[in-house]
Amino acid sequence: MKLDFTNRRAVVTGAAQGIGRTIVQSLAAEGAQVWALDMDDVGLRTAKEVGAQQTRTLDLSDRSAVARTMTEMADTLGGIDILVNCAGGVRGQVAKPVEDVSEEEWLVLFEANVHGAFFCSQAVAPHMKRNGFGRIVNISSGAGLRPSLTGIQAYTASKHALVGLTKQLSFELGPFGVTVNSVAPGFVLSNPNTQRQWENYGPEGQARLVQTIHTRRLGAPQDIANMVMFLTSDAASWVSGEIISVDGGRS
């Protein structure tokens, strides 16, 4: 199966590091014109180095700024074919008892993991519907399907919300030739936060975690990018509304 992305116009959020940057690199290597978005201006330089045609420093919680950026991209390239919502994470939070979670801690993770994905999807939908083609992939998490290893209530709840958003958008946009799916990664060493989490487990905790994974290894960003490449390709035209675990069999 050859996955050809020649002349496909793609936008990837959370593109400055780890999984997002690897997705940018993979799409660009197969011919896509990729715009890379992130809040990390320094990290976006590396996205440019691995193939991004354009980069934009953008706060995805700013709905109007998101809309302007997507309109600019569509005007510049003549449309938008692919959106990969990869931005998100724990924003430096750690587990604590539910009664100690502040309103700000709760809301900021919904902004990071749900609001941005919704605003981006909302902004690209008219362009995709007009062209009768589109691929939206949301990077959720195993935490969107079960309790999270992080123990962070807002992270788990927001990733579950992203799963629900995926299914609802698939239902709404499917008749217009737009598929919407989600990839739910297992434990992937992809950024400083996951590296710290891994180190905090200690040797015994690390060994226990690896034993729960059928393939007996942690994931790599390329493992996730490979699934995104399939879901955004023409080969996946009849795959929509799916939440696909890429976790070495742990689920």
Score class of each variant (00 low, 15 high):
residue 29 A to I: 12
residue 31 G to L: 05
residue 122 Q to A: 07
residue 157 A to D: 08
residue 39 M to W: 01
residue 214 H to R: 06
residue 91 R to V: 08
residue 36 A to M: 02
residue 161 A to H: 11
residue 141 S to P: 03
residue 153 Q to C: 11
residue 189 L to P: 10
residue 126 P to M: 06
residue 172 E to Q: 15
residue 245 S to D: 03
residue 72 E to R: 06
residue 126 P to A: 04
residue 96 K to R: 14
residue 227 M to S: 07
residue 221 P to F: 05
residue 146 R to L: 13
residue 191 N to L: 05
residue 23 I to A: 06
residue 239 V to W: 02
residue 47 A to C: 03
residue 178 V to W: 06
residue 36 A to K: 01
residue 206 Q to D: 09
residue 22 T to D: 02
residue 214 H to S: 13
residue 157 A to Q: 05
residue 147 P to L: 08
residue 129 K to I: 14
residue 21 R to M: 15
residue 151 G to K: 12
residue 52 A to P: 04
residue 104 E to M: 08
residue 61 S to Q: 10
residue 82 I to W: 09
residue 169 L to N: 02
residue 64 S to P: 00
residue 41 D to S: 15
residue 192 P to C: 08
residue 2 K to Q: 06
residue 90 V to G: 02
residue 186 G to V: 08
residue 60 L to G: 02
residue 133 F to Y: 15
residue 187 F to R: 07
residue 145 L to M: 15
residue 242 E to Q: 14
residue 188 V to R: 04
residue 95 A to N: 12
residue 121 S to T: 11
residue 223 D to V: 04
residue 195 Q to I: 11
residue 121 S to D: 00
residue 178 V to G: 03
residue 196 R to Q: 12
residue 178 V to F: 03
residue 130 R to G: 07
residue 98 V to F: 12
residue 70 M to T: 04
residue 169 L to T: 08
residue 31 G to T: 09
residue 193 N to W: 06
residue 99 E to M: 13
residue 9 R to T: 09
residue 57 T to K: 14
residue 139 I to K: 07
residue 103 E to C: 10
residue 119 F to T: 03
residue 50 V to E: 08
residue 189 L to F: 00
residue 100 D to H: 11
residue 139 I to V: 15
residue 208 R to E: 15
residue 248 G to C: 12
residue 195 Q to T: 12
residue 250 R to P: 01
residue 35 W to N: 01
residue 22 T to V: 15
residue 37 L to G: 04
residue 165 L to H: 01
residue 203 P to I: 10
residue 242 E to F: 03
residue 141 S to I: 09
residue 190 S to G: 10
residue 115 H to G: 02
residue 57 T to G: 04
residue 59 D to S: 14
residue 60 L to A: 09
residue 245 S to E: 13
residue 180 V to N: 12
residue 193 N to Q: 15
residue 221 P to W: 05
residue 148 S to Y: 01
residue 240 S to G: 13
residue 46 T to I: 14
residue 97 P to M: 09
residue 100 D to S: 15
residue 160 H to N: 11
residue 159 K to N: 10
residue 7 N to C: 07
residue 97 P to S: 10
residue 29 A to E: 15
residue 40 D to Q: 08
residue 250 R to A: 14
residue 132 G to W: 12
residue 197 Q to W: 06
residue 200 N to V: 00
residue 56 R to T: 05
residue 30 E to C: 10
residue 30 E to K: 15
residue 126 P to V: 09
residue 10 A to T: 05
residue 237 S to Q: 13
residue 226 N to C: 03
residue 1 M to G: 13
residue 100 D to T: 13
residue 122 Q to M: 11
residue 201 Y to T: 14
residue 130 R to I: 03
residue 70 M to L: 15
residue 115 H to Q: 03
residue 199 E to D: 13
residue 161 A to I: 10
residue 105 E to V: 07
residue 237 S to P: 00
residue 185 P to N: 06
residue 118 F to E: 04
residue 162 L to P: 09
residue 233 S to Q: 05
residue 211 Q to Y: 00
residue 156 T to F: 10
residue 139 I to N: 03
residue 14 G to P: 07
residue 231 L to H: 10
residue 81 D to L: 12
residue 176 F to D: 14
residue 128 M to N: 08
residue 25 Q to V: 02
residue 114 V to L: 15
residue 173 L to R: 09
residue 61 S to D: 05
residue 115 H to M: 11
